[in-house]
């Protein structure tokens, strides 16, 4: 029905649900993780100062089996 759109809408819905349920289950407001990401960026910056870092740490809440984990992906050198 929406052939021109590429992605089927249920895939978008699944991605959104996975994320929102991970936050719901961990009882964490998404904004809190964003604040953590900003703080983390500052700390990393202090230890590994670079000029004009292109990418900050990427922090996500993920469901792994029965547990919910915080995953921080911190690139040390942005190209």
């Amino acid at each position: 029905m929406f052939w021109g759109r590429g992605k089927r809408t249920k895939e978008t819905l699944k991605d959104r649900l996975e994320l929102v349920l991970a936050y719901d289950r961990a009882q964490i407001p998404p904004g809190k993780v964003d604040a953590l990401r900003r703080d983390l960026m500052e700390v990393v910056e202090r230890y590994f100062p670079t000029q004009g870092r292109a990418v900050g740490p990427n922090v996500e809440v993920e469901q792994r089996g029965d547990t919910v984990v915080l995953v921080a992906n911190i690139p040390l050198r942005g190209e």
Partner: peptide, 16 residues
């Protein structure tokens, strides 16, 4: 709608 990929299937719901 499930067939056209615009509604979650039973398998999707089980997975989620």
């Amino acid at each position: 709608m499930v067939a056209s990929g615009n509604m979650l299937s039973e398998a999707d719901i089980l997975e989620i």
